[in-house]
Design a binder for these strands. Sequence first.
DNA 1: AAGAACCTTTTAACGATTCTAAACTAACTT
DNA 2: AAGTTAGTTTAGAATCGTTAAAAGGTTCTT
Lengths: 140, 140
Amino acid sequence: MTETKSTRPYKKVLDRLRAAGLRPTRQRLALAKLLFEGGDRHVTAEILHGEAQAASIRVSLATVYNTLHQFTAADLLREIVVDSQRSYFDTNMSDHHHFFHEKTNQLMDIPGDEIVVAQMPPPPPGTVVKRVDIVVRLDE
Amino acid sequence: MTETKSTRPYKKVLDRLRAAGLRPTRQRLALAKLLFEGGDRHVTAEILHGEAQAASIRVSLATVYNTLHQFTAADLLREIVVDSQRSYFDTNMSDHHHFFHEKTNQLMDIPGDEIVVAQMPPPPPGTVVKRVDIVVRLDE
DNA sequence: AAGAACCTTTTAACGATTCTAAACTAACTT
DNA sequence: AAGTTAGTTTAGAATCGTTAAAAGGTTCTT
Ligand SMILES: [Mn+2]
Ligand SMILES: [Mn+2]
Ligand SMILES: [Zn+2]
Ligand SMILES: [Zn+2]
């Protein structure tokens, strides 16, 4: 019923890259497809690289890193810090927070309206708040 | 007036290590002194190792890492995740959150009562909340 | 003082990430 | 269409923070 796949499926991501001022190279198109078609995702460079391999897309790990950072700079992704050893990239750009299951390394979204921060101190003089990140760490 | 330094200054940290069931070795005593005498601190392994060197305490970086993890396991420290490339350890064990200045890598405490989280979704079934970490990222 | 348990050190290894420099390719100009 | 240019990708090496292994040293209990 809800058939969204197509045999000429690059139109959407192509427009997205163009809008971001990024050249639509094979690698960027393929990675963008993996990232942006399939709902909200939280990936590491390794995970995305693995998915590319699995889909027979030849792309180096260095390019995956470059692309993730470029997409982040272009506000197509955001970088989430939950693990002091690995970077996660999030395709969900809406205002939201995260559950992080430390055993499985799974990140889950908490919609922005499900957490209410009623009070917050002002930032120190000479600084401005860039973002407020809430991570609910889970066990068991 | 408020002279807290002494010429026989190991009593306090000694008791602290004993209470935690950790053998009071030279290295642990020295690191505990650096960590716990001087107010609330946020250190990386490198920073603490550097301070030890500066104080002519001979201790290897591996021991600094071991000690930080042992102190954390003994609830003398907590590990803070703000940077996906480096671990910070916090001597402030009270309920609190953090400002993180991304330009300078400085961590500053936000007392627990200055942030009010009014609403929070329940953890997914089969999981339990271990901790809620709020990081206010600062710019400029 | 002796034995056992525990701890520290050095060195090597590790995984994640970044860098380098050459090869390639998309985009622009003619 | 061909040539030019700037931007991109790549393999491989390098770097960084951190951990592991092995060997020797320290502390605790008796
Ligand atoms: Mn990064
Ligand atoms: Mn750790
Ligand atoms: Zn998310
Ligand atoms: Zn703190």
